[in-house]
């Protein structure tokens, strides 16, 4: 009797451990890939949609692993890893060749830190999205972990997302000032980033000032990540000054 009840549990633990191990391996491989591209090009791997998509994947994996280390909630992988995998598939639909930087992107420092902050911020946003969805699904699937744990992870990930996104937007404004002489031009991509920033700002405002928790809070986090994806894929239909191919 004892044997029959413990064996499946051990198997589950082993399978979950493999999942984490594979995620770590994937993170190392993506890091190596980006490192190699950086070594070849001499700048951050953000010069086209392929590089940015792989970097976005890296940001998601990094944020997930940090959340896993902090909260030990492997279930987040159910939502976060498919997004990462989808982005990798998308990345390899784009041109993978190493390209020279167009003149507007030829500020290697600002390119690296501006888009670097975007990658970290978007990665944390993906984790908050995963936690929010699991929070909403909790009553249906009766997870062992408490519902509040997902609420907490979603909030904490958004607390990381928001300042990183703020710095990303401000660095973009600084760069625009240098390149085009104006810090803000209502370019579609920067406006979409502002929408995203406002959604996360609304979330934190609602959470801290109004005490929003639970379902309303989770819905705002999902809307926030939808805004992130909208801003990210906007290059394909926005046009504007952020269309670099």
């Amino acid at each position: 009797m004892t044997t029959t009840t413990t064996t499946p549990a051990k198997s589950a633990v082993n399978v979950a451990s493999f999942t984490t191990a594979f995620t770590i391996i994937a993170f190392v491989l993506v890091t190596a890939y980006l490192g190699m591209r950086m070594a070849i090009t001499g700048h951050g791997p953000f010069s086209n949609q392929h590089e940015f998509a792989v970097a976005f994947t890296w940001g998601i994996l990094a944020a997930y692993l940090v959340a896993l280390w902090r909260y030990k909630v492997r279930m987040l992988a159910l939502l976060v890893l498919p997004v990462a995998a989808g982005l990798l598939v998308y990345a390899f639909q784009m041109g993978t060749e190493v390209q020279s930087l167009v003149p507007a992107l030829q500020d290697k420092l600002l390119l690296t830190i501006h888009v670097g902050f975007a990658v970290l911020s978007y990665g944390a946003a993906c984790v908050s999205f995963g936690a929010a969805v699991l929070y909403l699904l909790h009553p249906v699937f009766k997870f062992k972990l408490s519902r509040e744990t997902f609420d907490e992870i979603g909030y904490k990930a958004a607390v990381v997302t928001f300042p990183l996104m703020t710095i990303m937007i401000l660095l973009g404004a600084l760069w625009a000032q240098t390149a085009w002489g104006r810090y803000w031009g209502w370019d579609p991509k920067e406006t979409a980033a502002l929408v995203t920033w406002l959604v996360y700002g609304a979330f934190l405002h609602a959470r801290i000032a109004r005490g929003w928790r639970g379902t309303r809070s989770a819905v705002l986090l999902i809307v926030g990540f939808a805004a992130v994806m909208f801003a990210y894929f906007g290059n394909h239909f926005f046009g504007g000054l952020h269309s670099y191919g």
């Binding site: 406006t191 406002l198 609304a202 109004r210």
Partner: peptide, 24 residues
Amino acid sequence: SKTVGLIIILILTAYVLLGVLIPQ
């Protein structure tokens, strides 16, 4: 009022979103 503040942020978000979706 924090509620009024939140409503204004959401209206601003909607406004900016319109500025992205509609040609300007």
